[in-house]
Design a protein around this nucleic acid. Structure first.
Length: 235
DNA sequence: TCATTAAATTGTT
DNA sequence: AACAATTTAATGA
């Protein structure tokens, strides 16, 4: 098991194209932005790497620049429940960073990913100084709440097709992940890990969803054509 | 830039 | 879990 502290040892500053993927930077004033950018660190996460674990103290507020992460939680019975995936443009941990508590869930890289981190102190400085940042965080918290409720419902679904459909809909949440267009780079294997099904079953489900006209399956990813259907229709 | 080769991903059994 | 088929990425002329 890898100690998380190693994760940010090999860090560097961000490139401008990487800054473009960070949605909340655009909401800051020039000086706020400068302060944030100066503090931003970026690092690689390899598949299986944990960015944070339940119970660990919060040192960074994390965001995905590239790749895909999985947010999960261990319940009392020791079973792991996946809440959601985090695509590029997604930021998480604001709830715990706010209260400076320990993490309440695990974040694991599903594939090789670029992850940015903002120190909690800077996070709090932005909360104290930037209205735009506050809006972003508030919005984020609200949407996340909706996601967690949806995750519970998804977890109770027995129909694999619907499980896959709802999970995809959650990944495409335009409020939480504004950088995302209509295409999502995710392999069927990664999706399988995310929803907790076999790759074969995910493949079958995707074929069904595609036939229903809700998505288009591509090599190494998929395109959502009918988000509303993914969210509510019965497949 | 193009052709060849290796690696990754998909569709099936 | 294993297979072949397909797509992409990497390499080097």
């Amino acid at each position: 098991m890898k100690p998380e502290s190693l994760l940010f040892q090999r860090r560097r500053t961000l490139l401008t194209e990487e800054l473009d993927v960070i949605p909340w930077l655009k909401l800051l004033t020039v000086d706020e932005r400068q302060r944030a950018v100066e503090d931003l660190k970026i690092t690689d996460a390899l598949p299986g790497d944990y960015l944070c674990r339940t119970g660990r103290p919060v040192t960074y507020w994390f965001g995905v620049v590239d790749g895909l992460l999985k947010m999960s939680s261990d319940n009392a019975e020791g079973q792991t429940m996946t809440f959601t995936g985090v695509p590029p443009g997604g930021w998480f941990g604001e709830g715990t960073a706010l209260k400076r508590e320990a993490y309440r869930y695990n974040i694991q890289a599903l594939r090789k990913s670029l992850v940015a981190g903002l120190h909690v102190d800077t996070f709090h400085w932005l909360l104290d100084h930037s209205i735009g940042f506050n809006r972003f965080v508030m919005n984020q918290l609200n949407e996340r709440l909706g996601q967690f409720i949806a995750a519970r419902e998804i977890d109770r679904m027995t129909n694999p097709n619907i499980r896959v459909a709802r999970s995809l809909a959650a990944l495409f949440n335009p409020v939480l992940y504004p950088g995302l267009g209509t295409v999502l780079r995710i392999t069927q294997q990664e999706l399988a890990y995310l929803v907790g099904l076999s790759r074969q079953r995910v493949n079958e489900a995707l074929t069904t969803l595609a036939a229903a006209g809700a998505i288009e399956v591509e090599y190494g990813g998929l395109r959502v054509t009918d988000l509303q259907a993914l969210r509510s229709r019965i497949f």
